[in-house]
């Protein structure tokens, strides 16, 4: 074995023997490679030839805004979807996932207002009014904006469902909020 040649220093500590093999080459290579890489990396980023985290973020956001803009191009005819009878059922499913915790399982109101009565805080309860609230939300009052969460078609479907709730008179309704609208 080559052991004996390389054991130049052999010491005994409480019976423990220590050999003195040379450092494995591959280990030395990793050691120096990481140090050299580290130095270059640091200089690259701290001498401003590489982007700062703020610049990286700005570039990333630019891409997203671009995608969102091109996404807008595929707008749909909301009215048409809202009027489709199948939309109510699809909308009910969305409602039971995203809206019921605030507006009640039957739309009777809970944290958010009652959606079945003819009182409205925003607008007059027309399909356009409801769509607008759903899309942009009411940040100050805790109604989320759904524009970035629901697809345009889904927005229309949930509006169709909300419209279908009108006059259903569920149990334990929340007291009316907003202005009464006579239809």
């Amino acid at each position: 074995m080559s052991d004996d040649k390389e054991n130049q220093s052999t010491e005994h500590f409480d019976g423990i023997v220590e050999h003195d093999h040379p450092l494995p080459r591959w280990w030395v290579a990793i050691f120096f490679a990481t140090i050299i890489y580290g130095v270059i990396y640091y200089i690259h980023y701290e001498s401003h030839s590489g982007p700062t985290t703020d610049q990286e973020l700005a570039a990333g956001m630019q891409e997203i805004y671009q995608a969102q803009k091109s996404g807008v191009a595929e707008t749909i005819d909301y009215d048409q979807v809202i009027k489709k009878p199948e939309s109510i059922q699809a909308g009910a499913k969305i409602y039971s996932e995203k809206c019921f915790m605030c507006h009640g399982d039957k739309g009777q109101g809970l944290i958010g207002p009652n959606l079945t009565d003819n009182h409205w805080v925003h607008g007059k309860g027309t399909s356009q009014d409801i769509l607008a609230v759903v899309q942009t939300g009411v940040a100050a009052k805790g109604m989320p904006a759904w524009e970035s969460v629901l697809k345009p078609e889904e927005q229309a479907q949930v509006v169709a469902f909300v419209l279908s709730l009108k006059g259903t008179n569920p149990k334990n309704p929340k007291a009316p909020e907003g202005v009464e609208v006579s239809n």
Partner: peptide
């Protein structure tokens, strides 16, 4: 025996 004294130093 322990493999390498000089490795332990470094």
């Amino acid at each position: 025996p322990i493999y390498s004294y000089r490795l332990s130093i470094i």
